[in-house]
């Protein structure tokens, strides 16, 4: 058990290092995230100017939400990418057979790798635009250390939920051979239902409740609400529990799907 954990740390660390070699891309990405952060902030300011309590947010909440969104967009890999893309590529080339025969859990390996990537993206493409946003606008910050801790846990869970979804998308390549179409569609849903385009709390009536029950809500809406102090005490626990629930459900599904895929590869030779 100890050795497995240290292996996962090693995998995560390597993944972190690998992404950190693309410096120019990181700077370009930070710039782009900041530009989008500005545009979205101004649209939200316009909305909350008209309706100062829309969705239970005030204008500072809304602008903070806009920047949290830019910070999370790469961290949870909304547009896909990350370790799961490697899996899809390896399914296409057939190299995945090698992975399936490894004596370690495929899922654990890829999850560790994706967490390493997410860590890098959070510290660069998450933090930098957030600092930029904080310099330009008055933002809200977590009220105390407990909220910071809850937020930190929530971000990790946001990555695991998104990993579960992306892993299922990539695994579709076992049957479809090419996951481009599914990936495209999945990105659309992720973009919209994570609340990146517009906060889920703004959705009218019951659509808001539905959207907030879907796994994509765990990407941004939940961590953002924790940051903004919308979930306090037991409520915060429930919010994190929601993310844990989706993580478990998705990772279990991934496990079953990979087991089937394994059988398929073994029986049909890929």
């Amino acid at each position: 058990m100890r050795s497995t954990v240290s292996l996962w740390f090693a995998v995560a660390h390597r993944s972190f290092r690998r992404y950190s070699t693309y410096r120019a891309a990181t700077f370009a990405g930070i710039f782009t995230n900041s530009v989008f952060g500005l545009i979205i902030s101004f649209t939200y300011i316009a909305v909350w100017k008209q309706n100062p309590t829309a969705g239970g947010y005030d204008v500072a909440d809304a602008v903070t939400y806009a920047w949290l969104g830019q910070a999370m967009i790469m961290t949870v890999a909304v547009w896909s990418g990350g370790a799961t893309d490697d899996l899809a590529a390896r399914i296409k080339t057939g190299d995945v057979a090698i992975d399936l025969y490894r004596p370690v859990s495929l899922l654990g390996w890829y999850l560790a790798s994706d967490l390493g990537r997410a860590g890098y993206h959070l510290l660069t493409r998450g933090l930098a635009p957030m600092i930029f946003g904080a310099l330009v606008f008055d933002l809200h910050y977590p009220a105390n250390a407990l909220v910071w801790a809850q937020f930190a846990v929530s971000v990790v869970l946001a990555v695991t939920v998104s990993f579960g979804v992306r892993m299922l998308v990539s695994a579709s390549a076992f049957w479809l051979l090419d996951d481009t179409g599914v990936k495209h569609l999945a990105a659309v849903f992720a973009m919209f239902f994570s609340g990146l385009a517009v906060p889920l709390v703004l959705f009218p009536g019951w659509t808001s409740d539905v959207a907030q029950a879907l796994p994509w809500a765990a990407y941004l809406q939940v961590p953002a609400d924790i940051w903004l102090g919308k979930h306090q005490g037991l409520d915060a626990l429930a919010a994190v529990g929601f993310q844990v629930l989706w993580t478990v459900v998705l990772l279990l599904t991934c496990h079953l799907v990979l087991a089937r895929a394994n059988r398929k590869v073994v029986v049909h030779g890929g």
Binding site: S80, D85, R90, D99
Partner: peptide, 14 residues
């Protein structure tokens, strides 16, 4: 040693 992560990664773009 080989890992399951292929080096063909490129930064994703919109």
């Amino acid at each position: 040693t080989r890992s399951p992560t292929s080096p063909s990664w490129s930064p994703t773009s919109r």
